[in-house]
Design a binder for these strands. Structure first.
Lengths: 207, 207
DNA sequence: CTAGTTTTGGAATGAACGATACAAAAGGAG
DNA sequence: CTCCTTTTGTATCGTTCATTCCAAAACTAG
């Protein structure tokens, strides 16, 4: 009983996520959050306790969404492993430039938060750590499959390759925020994929 | 004439740079700047005009220092090009873990600022853009030299490879802030170098 | 020594911050 | 209808923010 909510909590969370994504944690004021969600201060504090708590939830929402999307691309067992990695890069690039027209890319909330807060906010760092593990797991998995199939070099272990891919994706995100164009990102991705391929002499025929 | 300064401007700038580096622009207060530089508010405003102006100067100081160091490593004409790239990666990794023991790496002020401010501060974006050009120039140069010497693949152009290396370095910086260890960064760097090498036996790759 | 100019410390500025208090409003439960 | 609980709008809290003001201090040129 009691008066029912006049808004959808999920929608509000999504709107808050977007503002934090665009402006960062510190530069986002509670006023900004009110404007973006359409809620009053009371509703925000009544529902999400504090700016910090709301940020942690918005971050979790983002990470769940993005990591699920990454997993969906990587677990497409019908395609060869390297193709799945290429598809992941393509989806990263698309995501980076899908934004409405003008201005630079706003990058990735995960990268942005790692840079802005991971060093001085233990709670946030832990959330990011868990998500990183999840993403690295997915990458290792597909890389191991690729190694078994002979499409991916076995000269480096899957963990190192996974960390490499994760770093390249992060670097692409930063590059996009730094003004790099789509073609630049595509060159970066293509070069990264090169590093995964086995030496020419060691390649075997694909099934 | 008039009363002379009681402090060294360069030292103050360096101290300010360090605080901005550790905490970011927004999270650094003028109080923090006073504490770090040892100056009073009056001296800071009298010398640097505003927090924003001080930040731009501190950023410029950082970029000049770091880009000069990168150029010094890359322009060591006595070593083969790929060796110079390896040395660059080694210096990035060393820089990332040179900090006194405890805590995560604080990353790179250039990356941090690109993420935090490039999207909404045109002045800062322009400073970063100029520095990026300078760094990409240095990378292209060494990569072209490597291509001429046959140490670096000619299957991708030097510009794409330069952007790739720059992105990987940025990604390593973010990874370090995300808690990655030295071994992880070394694997990333080694894998990135793999992508530069020509196909085994200088054979051309087939589609 | 003095006049002139700059730096310096410390207090004060108004604006914006995150967060709270409180009463009116709203709707379900009986 | 009337409780009773929860949400909501508004006003406000104390703090902190970047910045400015001002008078005392410090040094130099004459």
């Amino acid at each position: 009983m009691g008066r029912p909510r006049g808004f959808d909590e999920g929608r509000a969370l999504d709107a808050a996520m977007r503002v934090f994504w665009e402006n960062g944690y510190e530069a986002t004021s509670t006023q900004d959050l009110c404007a973006a969600t359409g809620l009053g201060r009371s509703s925000i504090y009544n529902t999400f306790t504090s700016k910090h708590e709301l940020f942690v939830r918005a971050l979790g929402h983002y990470l769940d969404t993005m990591s699920a999307a990454q997993a969906a691309v990587l677990e497409d067992a019908a395609r060869p492993a390297v193709e799945r990695v290429r598809a992941l890069f393509a989806s990263v690039i698309d995501g980076e430039y899908a934004r409405p027209g003008r201005g630079r890319s706003i990058g990735c909330l995960s990268v942005n938060t790692t840079v802005e807060l991971a060093g001085r906010d233990a709670r946030v760092a832990e959330v990011l750590d868990r998500d990183l593990d999840r993403r690295l797991d997915g990458l290792r998995e597909v890389l191991r499959a690729g190694q078994r199939a002979g499409e991916v070099t076995t000269e480096r272990d899957a963990d190192g390759l996974a960390r490499f891919l994760n770093a390249v994706i992060g670097g692409m995100r930063v590059s996009a925020q730094g003004g790099a164009g789509r073609d630049a990102l595509e060159a970066i991705a293509a070069t990264a994929v090169d590093a995964l391929l086995p030496p020419v002499g060691a390649r075997r025929r694909e099934a």
